[in-house]
Design a protein around this nucleic acid. Structure first.
Lengths: 109, 109
DNA sequence: TTGTTTCATTGTAATATTACGATTAAATAG
DNA sequence: CTATTTAATCGTAATATTACAATGAAACAA
């Protein structure tokens, strides 16, 4: 079916999986790392930096934007993207909380 | 095409996306949280705990196992699963490094 | 042996994702 | 006005994911 049964999970579980899903493609990881690395905003040079076609990059940017992790700002004919600081920190808190669960004495196999 | 072009990304970017992808479904998040919560190993009660059919849970467990995040141990007719401590810590390090990139003064939109 | 229990595997239908050519829209340059 | 540039959107083909019924396999009980 390709369709996750979200109604049987907690809001937290669904939120974690949504954030994780957007990181589940190397192009989106690369886009985010590039946005972090640059001091200034980048625009269409993501298409050159990463080797994918322009519509593909645009599609990945859209997904990152829909989750609120990046913001886009029109500057003339180009668009300037950057990390949304507030939303990134919120996501980071949720994800690290999930990753950082207490693991001591839990191994038994 | 539904096929990520992994060859154009770094090993690190591919590794991050593979870990993230496995967290990209709420059932797998729920399974991991359950394994963390219990002091002892769990077996087939994941099917009751989560509301999905047995083959579906088995399929999700397989994906977690393939990435090395959990281990399974046969005990009679049942199987005991638990978090793989070493591999979890390795994954955690990589993911937190990605999430914890320096964000100061990078916002410009 | 014959059930029974527990979980993995197989097969498959429904849906989602990925990638890109073609096109459109918006801003700017001439 | 007419290019030109840049990026979004549309349409679509190829592939991946999700879910589960049916079946298989392994351990145990009687």
């Amino acid at each position: 079916m390709g369709l996750a049964k979200t109604e049987m999970f907690t809001d937290e579980q669904n939120e974690i999986s949504l954030f994780a899903k957007v990181f589940g493609h190397p192009a989106r990881v690369a886009i985010l790392q590039h946005l972090f690395k640059l001091d200034s905003c980048i625009c269409g040079d993501l298409v050159n930096e990463i080797g994918l076609a322009q519509p593909t990059i645009s599609q990945h940017l859209k997904e990152l934007k829909q989750l609120g992790l990046i913001k886009g700002n029109v500057e003339g004919t180009s668009v300037c993207y950057c990390i949304d600081k507030t939303n990134w920190l919120h996501m980071k808190k949720i994800m690290i909380q999930f990753l950082d669960q207490d693991i001591s004495n839990k191994e038994c196999c």
